[in-house]
Design a binder for these strands. Structure first.
Length: 188
DNA sequence: TAGGCCATCTGGTCCT
DNA sequence: AGGACCAGATGGCCTA
């Protein structure tokens, strides 16, 4: 199953969740960004989470239980949620930035996170292999970055015990990266 | 409908 | 002590 070309889902700024679920006072925590309007019929994740919690009530509420929680405790949790949300947004921005510098075949297709990381890894390796090849050809002597780069590469290879036989050679990285690009293009 | 991917919430642990 | 980080849980959206 593939989830390709999925349009980015839109979100509204975070809302109070726990207090709503617990039937306690809602927070008037500021809502950063004062979020975009949702497309018709499209609920935000936060809103959906709220709904899910209200509907199913399956979220963990901690040992004290929602009813016994002090307001300050709830407020702390909400602030923590907000920080976590921001942290994840920062992480996702970094993923997006990474996507934009990784050449891949289908620009219209958004790489998943795991695809992004895997491609990036092999892209770096293929670039390293290319640099090695070029530097060893141009700088056979003792001066210049070539030998040092090669030493570093060899060190990396010796410490990385998970490399397969193909990856043991610089050309293998390029081949693997190329293969991976094609497999993503094929949607496999 | 199943499975992949994702956002969010949550509590625990680590770090400053 | 408080924030950052992490991983598990949960449920929605989307595609095959």
């Amino acid at each position: 199953m593939k989830t390709k070309n999925r349009p980015p889902r839109r979100r509204v700024p975070p809302q109070n969740t726990e207090a709503t679920t617990a039937g306690e006072q809602t927070s008037d925590r500021p809502q950063p960004g004062s979020g975009p309007q949702l497309a018709k019929g499209l609920r935000s994740r936060t809103a959906r989470a709220q709904g899910a919690r209200v509907e199913s009530g399956r979220r963990r509420l901690g040992p004290a239980g929602s009813s016994g929680r002090r307001e300050s405790s709830i407020q702390r949790r909400l602030e923590s949620n907000e920080r976590e949300r921001q942290r994840m947004h920062t992480l996702n921005n970094a993923f997006q930035a990474l996507r934009e510098v990784i050449p891949h075949v289908r620009a219209d297709k958004k790489l998943s996170k795991i695809e992004t990381l895997t491609l990036a890894k092999n892209y770096i390796k293929s670039l390293t292999a290319t640099i090695l090849t070029m530097s060893s050809g141009c700088l056979p002597g003792l001066d210049g970055p070539g030998p040092k780069l090669y030493q570093h590469y060899q060190q990396q290879q010796s410490t990385g015990s998970t490399l397969g036989a193909t990856e043991a050679q610089p050309e293998g990285h390029l081949q693997k990266y190329s293969t991976q690009i094609h497999s993503f293009r094929e949607g496999s």
